[in-house]
Amino acid sequence: MTIENVLLVSAALFAIGAYGVVSRRSLITVIMSLELMFNGVVIAAVAFSRFTPSAALLSGDPLTAEAIRSALTGHAFAIFVTAVAAGEAALAFALVFAMYRATESVEITDASEMKN
């Protein structure tokens, strides 16, 4: 488990999500693939926090608590992205429902025209 392996897994998840976003027809599965891409990015952030020392740790000779805690920047990023993705998923599904009510379908090809 080197950092390259973890980043490859993250890149693979991101690529699979990208395939899903581009080629799926139903809006729900597009949103699902978007969530996969979010997860791929966050895995990379946490991997950096685990394997790579932060700048504050490398440089500072007097060791401060902030420098030690800066090793966890990736974790804080992960929590923030998780919260944002949760809020965004809720709103995205509200939009999907609104589209379903308006056009009786959730296929992205059916929403390709401007309002009549």
Binding site: A11, A18, Y19, V22, S23, R25, I28
Partner: peptide, 17 residues
């Protein structure tokens, strides 16, 4: 959910990324 016409585009995009 049938995959849309752009399946080849999707595969190409994923592989490139």
């Amino acid at each position: 959910s049938r995959p849309a016409q752009g399946r080849l585009v999707g595969v190409a995009a994923a592989l490139l990324i």
